[in-house]
Nucleic acid binder design. Structure first.
Lengths: 208, 208, 208, 208
DNA sequence: GATGAATGAGTCTTCATTCAT
DNA sequence: GATGAATGAAGACTCATTCAT
């Protein structure tokens, strides 16, 4: 199938390639030429669309920022689960774990985690554009649940860590640290287990 | 220039400097000369102790591997908390969160997370030398708690993610993504909150 | 800086420059940058055409191998001198001595002699690509002369050494060990003298 | 057998080691530390006896210069062969070919040939200290033979090349270009053959 | 005297970026 | 607009030489 030239799509194709290459070897070790090759263009073309290699990284992070948080916000805003706060948080957790289990989808956050230290601007941007919004979503759900009497009034910082953390670990274990001999546990199982734990803890409850 | 000789400590001093520099700018962007300067030696000295820049990274990871997991194992083995499994897990969580809240202590894991993709050998080593051991600790505690009837019999993979995850997020929020205008929440609060959540969940319980 | 593009000739121009520089200071002491400057290009260009400095040396030797032996073979094959074996050997000797008297032409063999010890691959290549062929030429002429009854049946190894040797010495005396105050003897004289000696020896003959 | 310390022998032991190492990899690629190790001393000791690596090379060449020419001169001066000029030249040729067939003995001339281009001082020294003297020996024998009526009055430059050349080729073929699968021809055979050729040429002679 | 740790100048090599075509 | 040859700054690594011990 001949690929039709769509010059408007160029920058995005380049960024796709950049994400792939950065994800594999990191920003510093990535060669612009490899990105170009992967994008199916020549080296020079890259510089028609981006100032520099660093500019590509920043554009990439900017483009990717919206990804999962946006979806999370939409999920909550859509009032899925009929307004049931617990169900909504459960749905959110399941959605995020499922998403992040896809190595292609997790490439972006992994890249940011790897490069944020080196590029404070990227860290700052990510903090504002992703982390702050994620915090809002979690805090919002928590408040609502507390107001409804279904959640205990815990520290939102704790809930943020408790929700986002397992995702991160799951992501790292499924990619960078994946044991080739051992299959990754299915995301649904993990998602359900995590949600269950967050809701009920691990203590046994003696029925009255 | 002063030519002091302290052969004993040299390799370790160099690795300290390497960790600092790698931690700041990443492995690829780190200059050997900067590491040397940081260690108070000349460029050439580095190569008296290490084959290459990459060898330094590997030595660094090897040296650091034992750090926190070792402490965790010791904690559990020492039978602290008088054999009370719940207390032990709580102590463990508190200890880990406290440790990881120290940016100097978290430099090592952050470095590994950032470079593991690029260096599969390091990833494999870390998986075997750290992650596997951490998994054993968690699994052991879980089994014991279940046997004692104090824990529900949940998926160890879930508990691992639920315990390690919040630490990771806490670490990233306290370093790379730290907002200079906002103080980080105190580790004790977070530790206590996380432990509470893991044990009890967020659901309200209606007394019988 | 001028950026001219002459991709066709580049590799050869670079090898010319490399031969000049290697010839002057030897492979190890030659700086890639000097070769580049000599070739009128920038340092980076070298690496567009050659893997490494060592690759240049090997390419150089490969390119130069054919030079004189090829000409010698052609000379013999062409049946110059109307099939007269003695004349042919004499022509060959004269041709070689004349060629090797040109310092530019002798740069290649001198380079090989200087570097062969360090690079066994080069030595092996030269042995097969040059020495073996030269041996064949000499042996062929000797056999023919013997068959015709004009040559005595001597050891080909001796004739090889007797023919190639004076060339070598002449080459070294005319370049590396040239006395600036003393002019080199003209190649024709030497060639004629060597040929005469090889054919007739130095003993006086008393006519019957 | 315990080696007794003989500090006076040090410089010579070092030069022996230097010759070995220079001979193997060339001057530029030789490491002072390797020479020291080979000589059984520490790096610092080298600098107690020699100004620099280059000084070692020069000392080496100076020490080795006398070697074969000295022996040749002595041979001639000793009036070996009872004053028979032809016999003396033949003895000389045999002696030289035999000597040079020993790779250890030929290391020095090979080194000089390899490095002379790079170090004009060495070339000049060798020209004066070795080549000039060898020329004198050959010229002397030639003159004498001519005076006696046993040699034709040929160009001494030709005889020099004809005598020294086969030695050189023999040396190179027996070391640098030695074919591991093919044994080198015995020096005596080559020496006899060369002498025979130089005296009688290759032409058949029809008895009168 | 002897050692070998330390220094730092020197070079190969890479690769982001430019720009003639 | 597109290409990819060319540039040259930058950085890892080596090793002759020094000198504290």
């Amino acid at each position: 199938m001949a690929r039709v030239r769509r010059p408007e799509a160029r920058p995005d194709e380049i960024l796709d390639a950049a994400l792939a290459v950065f994800g594999e070897v990191g920003f510093a070790a990535a060669r612009v030429e490899d990105i170009a090759t992967r994008a199916g263009v020549s080296k020079g073309v890259i510089y028609l669309y981006f100032e520099s290699k660093e500019a590509m990284l920043k554009a990439l992070v900017r483009r990717l920022a919206d990804g999962m948080v946006g979806a999370a916000e939409a999920l909550v805003a859509s009032g899925a689960a009929g307004g049931d706060t617990e169900k909504m948080l459960r749905t959110l957790i399941t959605f995020m774990i499922t998403q992040i289990s896809n190595p292609a989808a997790s490439a972006a956050p992994r890249l940011v985690l790897a490069e944020a230290q080196r590029f404070p601007e990227i860290a700052a941007f990510y903090r504002d554009a992703v982390i702050a919004r994620a915090t809002l979503v979690i805090t919002g759900l928590l408040k609502r649940g507390v107001a409804e009497g279904v959640f205990r009034n815990i520290d939102p910082a704790v809930l943020l860590r408790a929700c986002a953390g397992p995702m991160l670990v799951h992501m790292f274990l499924g990619t960078v640290f994946a044991d080739p001999d051992e299959p990754a546990p299915p995301p649904e199982t993990i998602a359900a287990g995590i949600a269950d734990l967050i809701f009920n803890g691990i203590k046994t409850r003696h029925s009255p």
